[in-house]
C-alpha cells in the first residue's frame, strides 16, 4: 500500500469523497465540491471557446487582412440573441431564431429522414439475404414483427378491435423489452462510473491495488 503523494490526486480524491457525502445527506462539503466543479467547467469552457472560436473565427478574420467583411452579417444576426436580456429589444431574438430554425430544418430533415427512417425501414425488409441461416431468419422475422406491431400500437385512428388490438398488445411487449434493455444499459453505465471512481480511490489515491 503506497498512498499517493501527488497533491492533485489528493484534491481529486477529497472532492470525490465530498461529492459522495451527498449519499448520506446534503451538506456543505457536497455543495462546495459541486460549486467548484461548476465554476471550473464553465471557466474552462469559456476559455476554450474564446481561443478556439471567438478569436480565430470572428476577431482575426474581421480585424486582420484579408478582412472577411461578410462575417458581419451572421455576427449581427447572432448578437440579436442578446436582445432577450432587454425588455425593450427582446423581439430581436425572433430573427436569429428564424434563421436557426430554417437552416436547421433544411439541413436536418432530409438527413434524419434518410438515416432514421428510410435506411432503418429498409433494414427491416424481409429480403432473401436475411434468410441465410435459421438464426438470421428468426432475427429478421422478429425485427419485422417488432416494427409492425410497435407501429400498430402507435396507430390511433382506428378502434383497437380484432387483430389490431392483439397486434398492439404484442407491440407493447416489444416496447417494454426495448425499455428494459435501455434501463439495463443505463444501470451498467451508472455502475461503471462508480467503478471508475472506486478504482481511482483504491488504486491512484490509496495505492491498495
Amino acid at each position: 500500500m503506497s498512498i499517493s503523494t501527488s497533491i492533485w490526486v489528493w484534491i481529486a480524491a477529497l472532492l470525490t469523497l465530498m461529492i459522495y457525502s451527498f449519499l448520506y445527506k446534503e451538506n456543505p462539503f457536497y455543495r462546495l465540491a459541486e460549486h467548484i466543479f461548476m465554476g471550473l467547467s464553465i471557466g474552462y469552457s469559456v476559455v476554450i471557446l474564446w481561443y478556439n472560436y471567438i478569436l480565430p473565427r470572428i476577431y482575426e478574420p474581421l480585424f486582420f487582412p484579408p478582412h472577411q467583411w461578410s462575417l458581419i452579417f451572421p455576427i449581427l444576426i447572432g448578437m440579436m440573441t442578446f436582445g432577450i436580456f432587454s425588455e425593450k429589444y427582446n423581439w430581436l431574438i425572433k430573427y436569429p431564431l428564424a434563421v436557426y430554425v430554417a437552416g436547421y430544418a433544411g439541413v436536418q430533415i432530409p438527413l434524419q429522414l434518410q438515416t432514421m427512417i428510410l435506411r432503418q425501414a429498409e433494414a427491416s425488409f424481409l429480403t432473401p439475404d436475411k434468410f441465410t441461416s435459421l438464426f438470421s431468419s428468426f432475427n429478421a422475422l422478429l425485427i419485422f414483427a417488432g416494427l409492425v406491431t410497435t407501429l400498430i400500437y402507435f396507430y390511433f385512428s382506428a378502434k383497437r378491435e380484432h387483430g389490431l388490438g392483439g397486434a398492439s398488445q404484442v407491440g407493447i411487449i416489444f416496447i417494454m423489452i426495448a425499455f428494459g434493455a435501455a434501463f439495463g444499459y443505463t444501470v451498467m453505465a451508472r455502475i461503471s462510473l462508480l467503478i471508475g471512481r472506486m478504482q481511482f480511490l483504491l488504486q491512484d489515491w490509496l495505492g491498495i491495488m
Partner: peptide
C-alpha cells in the same frame, strides 16, 4: 457509446449505417 446510449444506437448498426 456509453451504456445509456447503446440500446438506441443498435438500429444504426442493424441498418448498416
Amino acid at each position: 457509446v456509453t451504456g445509456v446510449m447503446a440500446a438506441e444506437t443498435y438500429p444504426y448498426l442493424h441498418s448498416g449505417q
